[in-house]
Structure formats: structure tokens, C-alpha cells
């Protein structure tokens, strides 16, 4: 895979600090519960129960837990893809719906969700078309984004011509294209093999370091969560709730060697133990 190009860092430093402070609260989740009615008339399923969480601006936060713990549900609530049964979510004082309508979310799904009929360039371009951005501006931005994820040479290809890891990087480029303020990632690397995943984790940290977005990252992989995050929110199932919040004080920038430090293992053990307590 290709190395990243660092020539243009200024573009990604641009950030709107005008309406909130660097360390301000970006997302506030208060007493949020989510109950899904059972389709066959059985017992309703409580996906989340009384979740409270504050996410700071520019923070990289992971939602970690086994299947059924409601981590994806929580992400979808923030993204306004679902509405909570009770409780309140605010993003800089606004509702998730307002934030979505202002196109301030970038979402990366578990599958790359590329549009098969568009070339890589036009896939990255798509959200900008929806924003009504000028064509010249779009073209320049697409080039920058593909450069950022190291896929500039593949712009004219169709998605089926790319490997799974490359497709997922296109998904990340597309999510970042409209300069979202919050990047929501729903198990984006879980379908990839271990080598590709570790490579993409490092790629993601580099991109995050450049763009300084708030990232909410859903995963069921403990080492992935520790490696990437500032904070790991551990969720436990039946019903889904926050069982622990672990600050990860590993120095940044983190590289492969970081995974072999005793501190790294300490965090992994700590998080694993917090599951056993459940």
C-alpha cells in the first residue's frame, strides 16, 4: 500500500473554533434508553438502558463491547439514524437531527457502502454534490482526499476493482470530504484481515491527527479500541449499558511498537477484567 503524502497539512488544520472551545463538550448523552419492540409480538428488547456519556471535542472515543451490547445502536442514535425511546442527546446544544440536516456528520459503515456505478473519484465526490459545492472545488477536494488515504492512482477505477481495505479507505475519504465535525465509524475494519486492519488503524490515526475531528468508533476488538482511543467506553449487554469508561494515556503518535508496550497490555487486561465483572 502507498505511503501518505504530507505535503499539504494546512488544509486539514482548518477548524472552526469560533463557536466552541477546543476542550468543550461536543456530544452529551443523558439517560438515553432504546427499546425495540419485538416484531413477532414477543418481549420488547432493551438495547440501551440509561446511558450517560459526555464526549469532548476532538476526542477519539471507542464504544467497545460484545454483540448485543447496543454499541451500534448508540452510534445510530447520535447519527439520527434512530431516535431514542427516552433520554436526550445533544451535539453542541443541538439535536442530532439538526446536526444531520446541516451535514456535519461523516459516517463510515462496516461495509464500505460504495456506489458500484460510480468511479472512486465520483464516490468521494457524491456528498459534495449533495452539498451543492462547485465543480472546480469538488475536483480539487476529491484529489486531496484521495491523496490523504493514498488512493490517488485509483480514482478512475470502479469499486469492484479494489480490495476490501482499499474500498474502506475510499469510504473514509468520502466521509471526510465534506469536512464533517464528527466522524462516526461503525466497526469499519471488522470485515478486514488482521494485517490490513492494523495498517488502516495507523492510517486512521494519521488522518485523525491531521484533521482533528471528533471520532466515535464502534468496535468489538479490545486491542483496536486501546490502540486508537483517548477513551474507551465499555458497554455490556442485556440490557446494553455503560459498564466502564477507561482513559487511555498512551503517548501519541502511536505506532506498531506501541502495541508491544507493557502499558498497552495493562490497558487490555484492565478492559478485559471489566467485562468479567459483568
Amino acid at each position: 500500500m502507498e505511503a501518505f503524502n504530507y505535503t499539504d497539512t494546512t488544509e486539514f488544520m482548518e477548524r472552526d473554533f469560533s463557536n466552541s472551545k477546543e476542550t468543550g463538550t461536543e456530544i452529551k448523552i443523558e439517560n438515553v434508553s432504546m427499546v425495540f419492540p419485538d416484531k413477532n409480538g414477543g418481549e420488547p428488547v432493551t438495547a440501551l438502558q440509561n446511558v450517560n456519556l459526555e464526549i469532548k471535542q476532538g476526542e477519539f472515543i471507542s464504544l467497545l463491547g460484545p454483540s448485543g451490547c447496543g454499541k451500534t445502536t448508540l452510534l445510530r442514535l447520535i447519527a439520527d439514524l434512530l431516535q431514542p425511546t427516552s433520554g436526550n442527546i445533544t451535539v453542541r446544544g443541538e439535536t442530532p437531527r439538526d446536526v444531520r440536516l446541516k451535514k456535519k456528520y461523516g459516517i463510515v459503515f462496516q461495509n464500505p457502502v460504495l456506489y458500484d456505478w460510480r468511479t472512486i473519484r465520483r464516490n468521494v465526490c457524491m456528498p459534495m454534490e449533495l452539498m451543492g459545492m462547485k465543480k472546480s472545488e469538488r475536483t480539487a477536494r476529491v484529489t486531496k482526499m484521495l491523496e490523504l488515504v493514498g488512493l490517488l492512482d485509483f480514482g478512475k477505477h470502479y469499486p469492484y476493482e479494489l480490495s476490501g481495505g482499499m474500498q474502506q479507505r475510499v469510504g473514509i475519504a468520502r466521509a471526510l470530504a465534506i469536512k464533517p465535525e464528527i466522524l462516526l465509524m461503525d466497526e469499519p475494519f471488522s470485515a478486514l484481515d488482521e494485517f490490513t486492519r492494523e495498517k488502516l488503524q495507523i492510517d486512521l490515526l494519521r488522518i485523525w491527527n491531521k484533521t482533528n475531528k471528533t471520532v466515535i468508533f464502534v468496535t468489538h476488538n479490545i486491542s483496536e479500541a486501546v490502540f486508537l482511543s483517548d477513551r474507551v467506553v465499555v458497554l455490556s449487554p442485556h440490557p446494553g449499558r455503560v459498564s466502564a469508561v477507561v482513559d487511555i494515556d498512551l503517548p501519541r503518535p502511536r505506532d506498531m511498537e506501541c502495541r508491544q508496550t507493557p502499558e498497552f497490555f495493562d490497558y487490555m487486561t484492565k478492559i478485559r477484567n471489566s467485562f468479567e465483572g459483568v
Binding site: A79, D80, R100, K103, I107, F109, V113, L130, M131, I178
Partner: peptide
């Protein structure tokens, strides 16, 4: 998922 992507960008019916 493809529809949700459109939804997340608040795309209109026509788009």
C-alpha cells in the same frame, strides 16, 4: 445502508 448514507447527508428525494 446505501439509503442510510443518503439519509445521513440529508439528501432530498430527487437526489
Amino acid at each position: 445502508e446505501k439509503k442510510e448514507l443518503m439519509y445521513s447527508y440529508a439528501a432530498g428525494k430527487k437526489s
